[in-house]
Amino acid sequence: MNSSITVVKVGIADLGIVQAPNLIRTSGLGSCVGVIIYDLPNKIAALVHVMLPDSALFKGDKLNKAKYADTAIQETVRLLLDYGAKKFHFKAKIAGGSQMFTFSSGSDMMRIGPRNVEEVKKQLSKLRIPIISEDVGGSNGRTIEFDPNTGKLNIRTVNQGIKEI
């Protein structure tokens, strides 16, 4: 086993790519969704920290593709292909999309977590990438770490301990 394993950290609205034996993680997912697309035979994985469902409202000139579900999935796939991963191996795991706070006024903003999950799933199915497992919804934060060697996603929460999907 290689002793110098690095854990690549992916920030908010950020995207990262990693090859075994290295790991990839993102911390403190709330309503955001962490999407991992991986190629197990080649041991390559990408993680994107999606913040919002769609980029239609963006008015500026420099779009951060990793931020929105509708652009993030495509961008992740593009980078994986550039990296040498093979599309027919692609599988996905997703986690996040919580509703951290509940309010009586059920505005769209309050439902941002479930909307992120819906859009991520829509985009993945459009590209015919199967979702192998998921841990979404609820009202708790998650820190996730993926191992491209085993294809296991480790999920840590404050109130419900650690699990692996």
């Binding site: 908010i12 911390s27 309503s31 955001c32 913040m51 903003m109 934060g141």
Partner: peptide, 12 residues
């Protein structure tokens, strides 16, 4: 809960 999970809610 975690800082990331909580504060991002104010950034939506």
């Amino acid at each position: 809960d975690m800082v990331g999970a909580i504060l991002t809610f104010g950034l939506i």
